[in-house]
Computed example of a mutant assay.
Amino acid sequence: MSTAVEVPPGTAPPARPRRSLTSRPTGADIVFHRVTSTSAIIVLGIMLLVGSFLALRAADALSVAKLDFLTETKWEPDAHHFGIAGVLTGTVLIGLVAILFAVPLATATALYISEYAPARLQRTFITLIDLMAAVPSVVYGLWGFFFLQNQVVPLAQWISERFGWLPFLGIDTEGYVKGSATSQNTVFTSSTFIAGIVVAFMVTPIMCALMREAFSQAPIGEREGAYALGSTKWGMIRTVVLPFGKGGIIGGSMLGLGRALGETIAVYMVLSVVPAFQPNIFQNGGSSVSSLIALRYGEAQEFSLSALFAAGLALFLMTMAINFTASTIVARSRSGAESG
C-alpha cells in the first residue's frame, strides 16, 4: 500500500521528471517525407545507372588499355594506342584557369551584393547574376570566339613573352618569333587560357549564389559586436563574414570546378582541339575530355566508341568526387564556428 509523501508547509513539492515531448506527423508531413525520400532515392539510382552504363560500354576499351589508359598521352583507339593523360591534363588546366578568374570575381560580387549594395537593388542584382546561369553555352562560345579572343590575345602574348620561363606559360612551337604581331593570330588564338576565361564566366553565377547565401547568414550579433568594438566595415567583413562564409567559398569554388571540368560546347567552339599532351595554356590548341568526345563521337567505330565511353567514365568519376567533396564542406559549415 503506497503512502503519500507529506510536504511541509511553505515548501514546494518535489520536482517530477517531465514526460518526453512527442509530435504526431500530419498527413502533409507524411506525404512530404515520402516524396523527398523517393526523390533522393531516384536521383541516387539514376547516378548509379549512369555510372554502370558508362562502365559497361567502356569495358572493351579498358580491357585492352588497362593501366595505360591513365598514362598514355596519344589518342589512337583504332590502333589500340590511346589514353586520357593528355586530354585529362587539358581538362584540369581549363578548370584551373576558370577557377583562377571565377573565384575572385564571384567572391567580390557576392560580398558587394550582401554587404554593400543598396537594399532596393539587391534583388535586381541577384536576378541579373542568376540569369547569367541561364545563358546557353553556345552563346558563351560565340562570345568567346568572336569577341573575347581578340581582346585577350595581346595579354596572353605579353605574359608568355615575359614569364615564359615558368611552367605552362611558355610557347613550344617552331616558327614563333618573339614580339611578332603575326604570331598573335597563329600561336595565341584558340588556347586553353581563352577557353578557361570563357568557362570562368559560365561558372561564376553558381559560385556567386552559394557564396552570397553563406555571407548573408553571418550572425547579426557578431556583426554588431565587431562594430561595437570599433571595427570598420571591412574589418567586420574580414573578421566575421569571411570566416563564417569560408565553407561557402570553398564549397562554391569546388562546385564551380566540377562544372568547369565538364563544359563541352563553349570549350569545343573556342579551343582548337588537339587530343595530345599540350601543357602550355597560352599556346594554340589544347584538349579536354568533353570536347574530345564531342569531336570524335560522330565518326567513332565500335571500339573507338568504347574508348570514348571510358574517357566519359573517368570524367564522370572525377566530377562526382569533386561535387561530393564540395557538398561535404558546405554541409559542415556552421554558424559562427570560425569567426573571431
Rank of each mutant, 00 (worst) to 15 (best):
M1T: 08
A4V: 03
P8F: 05
P13T: 06
L21K: 09
S23N: 05
F32C: 05
L44C: 13
L48R: 04
L49W: 07
F53E: 03
A55S: 06
L56S: 11
A61G: 06
L62K: 02
A65N: 04
L67A: 09
E76M: 03
I84Q: 02
T91F: 04
V92M: 07
V97N: 06
I113G: 14
E115C: 07
Y116A: 13
P118S: 07
A119C: 08
R120N: 14
R123C: 06
I126L: 05
T127Y: 10
D130G: 12
L131I: 12
A133F: 14
P136T: 10
G144F: 09
F146G: 01
Q149D: 09
A156F: 07
E161K: 10
R162G: 04
W165S: 15
L166Q: 05
G179P: 08
G179L: 12
T182V: 03
I194F: 07
A200W: 10
F201L: 15
M202L: 15
P205Q: 04
F215Y: 13
S216K: 08
Q217N: 10
A218D: 02
P219G: 14
P219D: 15
I220Q: 10
W234Q: 06
G235N: 05
M236T: 14
I237H: 02
V241E: 12
L242W: 08
P243W: 12
P243A: 15
G245P: 12
G248C: 10
I249R: 07
G262A: 12
M269P: 04
F282I: 01
N284E: 01
N284L: 05
S287P: 04
L292C: 00
L295W: 05
R296T: 02
G298K: 07
E302W: 01
F303K: 03
A311Q: 13
L313M: 14
T325N: 06
R334L: 09
S335T: 10
